[in-house]
Design a protein around this nucleic acid. Structure first.
Lengths: 261, 261
DNA sequence: CGAAGATTTGACACGGTTCAAAACGTGTGG
DNA sequence: CCACACGTTTTGAACCGTGTCAAATCTTCG
């Protein structure tokens, strides 16, 4: 497992010898706690301190292997920045990406002590890493953590079911439309004063290969389909790895198969 | 929700007025506890009594709707006999079966209080039904139950990932081979004296339509593929809804794509 | 026995893959 | 800053696995 040295960034003050890292991590956890949807919600100051002292923050460059299928599950991660791809593979190299994990999501549950999937960073990724035994202990000590984890897994399972519907029953066009819509929700700060953007932007940091392996298509079909949607003025490319959705309603219709074309 | 009267079977003795049903259910739970893999494992006599008194056993005929997508999640089920299909649908009727739940599995987790999927019985199904508030209370009172549930969901998620690999990247032949192999593990009593059957039997209580909707194929392709495997003497039909696997190794090779044909 | 549903088989069509090549970006060194 | 090279994306043309449509056969059960 590749492992970059912990980033020395954000050293503002506080130079106590042994508490420096922990204090920084606690600050980070307090921040993380405020963003809803994560594991660390509502577990109290004591819980956050326990989490902070038994986790380690890491920054991983793009393309890092975080988890390999079949390996002993030694770490548990909470993603705070960037995107991770989870996948399963066949012996001949065919690959299915089973999901993209964005900030706020966990990573590293194991079946019988082994990872059942592989995981690689898509871009630069920040994580909190826990050693498994310590995380298990935290689970037992913090009922809210256990409950948050249960809720989070349930969400992942529901996503997986939705993705099975996509993979088994949708056309290429429906798949791509669904994918683009799905890439718009991520990491939207809940600001009530700003109404939902009428032309949201999809964050697409991954390559065509990854998209294809996620949707059960080839890169050529993905490319052709995106080109077609662009020709039809339903979407438009803005900057790098960003796609603006000009007609969310039309795209939603396509994604759910409620369209003639 | 269809609902048949509780089966009066296994009344051996004991005619105390108010404890009759509960006692029978406790017997059932004790039995259930012995079969590994379920939610009710290792929760102790007190826990089993709590489970027994807050659950109700039901017998559901084939084709019963247990759960409808989008409905309020009021019940939680533990399956003790029979097979249930879980599925998601598109507005135009296309359907994806996301999994079959066999005895020992639970059913009824909700996202934000709503079921994210539909569920129907395949054959005659026996379940323990819990009302949601009571089940939530049990979860808080019985740490082992919570832990068992976490393990069970993790298994379901791993299965879902495997199924995504199948749906997105396998050929029809590989899909059918995987399916048949997957239908052999279910409900094997752990008898150490009997070595694993060299020609295991796949339990296939569901129709071709269900198999097709599970594998992301049409019924015609499923039928053709099974016929081809039979022609090649890799499988053979025995009784109804049972398929004997004559060459598990060959089928495994096919299922994982390690084959030329 | 007869009817209704499920499964199997056949012929053909089509969506998506495969193979090939051009166009586009991106980073590097001169 | 440009030129080059390499990887990624896009586009094109032909092929093929699976879907579609149709009909025959098999099951199930009143």
């Amino acid at each position: 497992m590749p492992q970059t040295p912990p980033s020395p960034s954000q050293h503002t003050a506080g130079r106590q010898m042994r508490h420096e890292r922990t204090e920084g991590d606690l600050q980070h956890c307090l921040l993380c706690d405020r963003n809803s949807g994560g594991l660390c919600n509502r577990i109290g100051r004591d819980g956050l301190e326990a989490l902070a002292s038994s986790s380690r923050r890491l920054v991983l460059p793009p393309g890092s292997t975080m988890v390999e299928e079949g390996q002993a599950a030694e770490s548990f991660f909470n993603i705070t920045r960037g995107t991770v791809k989870l996948f399963k593979s066949l012996p001949d190299g065919r690959r299915q990406i089973t999901g993209f994990a964005d900030p706020g999501q966990f990573l590293g549950l194991s079946r019988a002590g082994l990872y059942a999937f592989g995981a690689e960073t898509v871009d630069t990724v920040h994580v909190c890493r826990f050693q498994r035994p310590q995380f298990e202990a935290l689970l037992n000590d913090l009922p809210h953590l256990k409950r948050n984890l249960l809720t989070a897994i349930t969400d992942r399972l529901a996503e997986a079911q939705e993705q099975m519907l996509l993979l088994g029953r949708k056309t290429a066009r429906e798949k791509v439309a669904s994918f683009l819509l799905g890439r718009t929700q991520t990491e939207q700060p809940p600001s009530d004063d700003t109404p939902p953007d009428p032309t949201p932007v999809a964050s697409v940091p991954m390559t065509r290969v990854d998209i294809a392996d996620y949707l059960g298509l080839t890169i050529e079909t993905v490319s052709r389909t995106i080109s077609a949607l662009r020709r039809e003025k339903l979407i438009t490319s803005t900057e790098n790895h960003c796609i603006r959705i000009l007609s969310p309603d039309a795209l939603r219709q396509i994604a759910t198969g409620q369209t003639a074309g």
